[in-house]
Design a protein around this nucleic acid. Sequence first.
DNA 1: AATTGTAGGTCCGCCCAATT
DNA 2: AATTGGGCGGACCTACAATT
Length: 757
Amino acid sequence: MPQGMVPPTNIFSLSGQPICVFVEASGVQSRPKLIRSLRNAGATICHTPGDAQVILVDSSTLEGVQFVREWNSDPGKVVLESTWAGKCVRAGRLLWAADNWGGCACILSGDGQTVVQNSADEEAKSHLPTPSPTPTRPDPQPSSAHPVLPPQSQPLLSSSSMHFGNGAAAFPSNRASSSTSSQGIQSSAIPLQYPQFGTPPPTSMIQSQMTQPLSAQLQLTPQMATLLPPMPQIPQHMLPELLNNFLRMAYMLPPQYQQTYQGMQPGQVPQTPYTVPEQPQSQPLVQQQPYSPTRTSAISPPPPTAPPPVVSSSTAQRARASPFSKNHPSSLKRKAPLKSPSLYSPSPSSSSRATPAGSKGKERAYSSAESDKEEDEDETPNSSQMAHTGSSPSDSAPRRTILAPREEGHIFETDAGDALLFHVQVDLKNRMQVVQAIKKNSGKVTSDIETADYIILYTRSKTFNALYDSTEANGKLPIQPSFVMDCVEEKALLDHNHYILEHPDPKRKRKKAKTAKTKSKSKRNSVTQNKIPTPKVKRKPKKIVPILDGAEHGFDCNLQSPPPPTNESRLPSGKYLFTEEEKEYAKKYIELSLMRDPTTSGTRIAQRLAAKMPAHSPVSWHTTISRMNVFTDATRKKIMAERAEAKAASEAPSAKPSPDGTDNNGSAPDGTGSDIYDQELHFLINFLMTNDLNESEAETFARLETQARCQTSSNWIQFYDEHFGDITRALGVDAASQPQPAHPTLYKIEAKDEGLN
DNA sequence: AATTGTAGGTCCGCCCAATT
DNA sequence: AATTGGGCGGACCTACAATT
């Protein structure tokens, strides 16, 4: 990060009093950055719009319009375009009413459906480069793929039915907002080559140009990084049917699920700009960025748990090897062969256990969240090793976001041609390799963390903790060495946000050996007890924050569980009885967990259940669910079999889609295409039926795209559109709980639903 | 009978010292 | 400097005892 970019700290104050600003959570791009810059410049950030003097929105989003509608009439408040903040910072002063709010005031259009900005805005934009709250990045999708309406002309329908906590409502139309906020700007402004704080510009450049985007002044925390998913659009003509069907499916589900759709009637289908990522068929450098829902709520922004996995074309190719089964957790590729789903052969023994091969003792956690070995290896500077071993798809998986292609030898330069500064930890393993790679590519190495643009650290070194703290103190982010090597390999400046190292875990410091086994055991028990608040203690300190395990490994991490039952039955002894409802819920939850990740261990499920229903300890839950092992085992087996089947189908040579991406949907005379089509149909149905209903349709399809590539159509939306009849037929038949549903999972869901109440 | 807690065991990754 | 191997702790599992 370049220095000297700190804006004045008192811009957002009136008479010495900080202005209370509320930044709308769902629609505003790069909200964390915006908030930080507001704070840095003296503003007070409110958590509710009611407390705010200024409400910042992205008026191109439904949420933005909603806020304008709701709050603009409030005399004590003003609703402004989020770009206002940047304008103030650039102007070095508060652009208040007398300044016509910098041209950022939002006014409802006549029909109340869209927001128009006052004319001063356009004027301002014409000569004043406005920092886009959404830094540009390589467009993940050519506009030709799906026409994008100009944001101002986008219909904003049924926004009154939107709920800000709702996934659909919270679905930000990033492209729209991005293009809005930067409308007419980028052509005149300096090119934004530093999206998401990716490549800091040289100091000289900053000092000479007040046009530096605000975003570049900020640092991106891992959490922030998760909030910035780019989003391509899909044609809106697909929406009504699609959404209605989602709703229809929702209504087929039990009340627990349906309640997530409260307030959303079929006739009120929110017609948000519907987006879904497409497979980039011919984009050598621009990476696909599967959308990962942020679920941002205006009231309570959720923890960012699902950063968008980003795939460069080259890595996407590799990651796409097994579309349906996706990449397996790294742990699956370790020595333990049992972890491989393909090798998973559930023991038919009477004492069926969750342990796949029926082995006793520890079967390393199935959970993908624990597969940390790969991350460890990620630290190895030699990324080419990682990339070419071929043994770890997750390594080569979507991590490389190309910010700017570069010529060899000039990778670590800014667009202005200035060398980027790297601080490379002295005791970094293979430091020379990294340093040489930097130098060979016009980068510079500095010993000064303060001035460095990138801080390369090595987690295993003894000085890592101190360096980490120092890095943090300087407001910078520690980066993995592999970032350098990956940049070289990609011949491009990559997004370092995917290489951020997590804060060192104090637990990794090993205590001096003391052996008493009994001691170990008692300790173990205490650990078990303590697991309630922190379900999982990761041994691995070097977790790469922005990587989404679920997406990377192809698990449906986004599936959400329904609310747990609340009725507790207490025994006279004071103990809590496991009610039937709780048991049923546990079954449901087991299924859900296995859906998310079929390798999830019983212990983990028990821990999660205990977290949800703390009346019973994790141990108790474990005991209880271990009695459901027959069920668990069968479910696990089923899910793994489905995935293996889908994987096999997708890997079949004949299953390759036609190179031109044309449809070969199931009508192939040899029947192969039909098989694929059937597979995909079932896969889609299964996916839809197990979909988290809090998730918007766009999110669903985006997630679907990240999990499997549609082969018989160019994407899943199209597949849905083309085979709508089959899909509804299958859904209808299956939903009618016929004895032999098209898809085992469907059956499972139905059975599950019946058992619920 | 049901729940809770403990014991015993296996497996695996990390760390560090020894070795090459 | 890189590699290797052992110690160690943690994660996980099942079986069983204790408690109410």
